[in-house]
């Protein structure tokens, strides 16, 4: 087969140029959702004015939300009702049934820093290791992890953030990990 470099190079250059030209945060008037005629334009805060001040990331809102929280860039309220119990759980679970991909390490800590146990248990996940038939098809359809990841939490293009434990280097046992290692922020 004849190698035609133009065929590869030109589309690549154009794609990169388009990507580079795309603003990180679209202005409200151009986001395709807000009505440019709406009197809210000019009153509502523009995403760039808030998000550009937070630790950067490459996907989703382009914000490393966990870092923003842990490093004090933002201090979102944990509750409105004074009697609401705040629980943060530091417990990692390694899920081994991931086919050829690296195993999934699920860290409870960053999740419970944002969410209440009841948001996931038992509505989305049964509170038992291996009891949930999680798979990527379901996740891509907005079930299980896909209720948030792909919608508001980091998107499903970030495979390695979840599939983070290579089988070759893992010497422990899958399931609940004896010592949590979730202190490093996954972003």
């Amino acid at each position: 087969m004849k190698f035609r470099p133009l065929l590869y190079v030109v589309p690549l250059i154009i794609s990169f140029a388009l990507l580079a030209a795309e603003p990180r945060w679209q202005s409200l008037v151009e986001d395709g959702l807000h009505d440019p005629e709406s009197p809210a334009i000019g009153v509502l805060q523009e995403p760039a004015s808030a998000l550009s001040l937070l630790p950067p990331d490459n996907s989703g809102n382009r914000v490393a939300w966990i870092r923003a929280l842990r490093e004090g860039y933002i201090e979102p309220r944990t509750n409105i009702y004074p009697e609401t119990k705040i629980e943060v759980l530091d417990m990692d679970i390694v899920m081994e049934k991931t086919g050829e991909l690296s195993m999934v390490m699920f860290p409870h800590k960053p999740h419970t820093e944002w969410l209440d146990c009841a948001n996931c248990h038992d509505k989305i996940f049964v509170e038992k290791v291996d009891a949930n038939p999680i798979n990527m098809f379901a996740i891509l359809s907005g079930e299980y992890c896909g209720q948030c990841h792909g919608a508001v939490a980091f998107p499903l293009t970030e495979c390695n953030r979840c599939h983070s434990v290579p089988r070759s280097s893992f010497t422990g046992k899958p399931g609940v990990q004896p010592i949590p290692v979730s202190d490093q922020a996954p972003g």
């Binding site: 959702l33 808030a50 309220r77 509750n79 409105i80 609401t84 820093e113």
Partner: peptide
Amino acid sequence: RPVIFPHWFHRIRFRCKVCHDELGFEMR
């Protein structure tokens, strides 16, 4: 006009659980 709800604006000020647990918003 339809309502546009920006998650980014709200999560700077509130954790997910305030609306999705205390206020009872379904996550759908």
